[in-house]
């Protein structure tokens, strides 16, 4: 699983702390997701996509 959170964050000039606050997790969790070390739950993935007003598929990509 890969994601474009870092790209979307940069596009909106948003810090990890701000994103973490908006979706209700710790900054460490955002760091772990960005580094592909942790795969978020479906609920968190939807929340993150919602913050960027994008669909989940645009933010997260599943690689076989």
């Amino acid at each position: 699983m890969t994601n474009k959170i870092k790209v979307y964050r940069a596009m909106r000039d948003m810090t990890q702390e701000q994103l973490a606050c908006k979706v209700g997790v710790t900054r460490q969790t955002i760091i772990a997701i960005e580094k592909n070390k942790y795969i978020p739950s479906l609920e968190l993935a939807f929340k993150i996509a919602g913050v960027f007003s994008e669909t989940v598929e645009n933010i997260f990509q599943h690689q076989q």
Binding site: A20, C21, G24, V25, T26, Q28, T29, A32, Y38, P40, S41, L44
Partner: peptide
């Protein structure tokens, strides 16, 4: 006030 426990920490 900050989030101290989230799904990653619970996992």
């Amino acid at each position: 006030k900050a989030v101290l426990v989230d799904e990653r920490i619970q996992t």
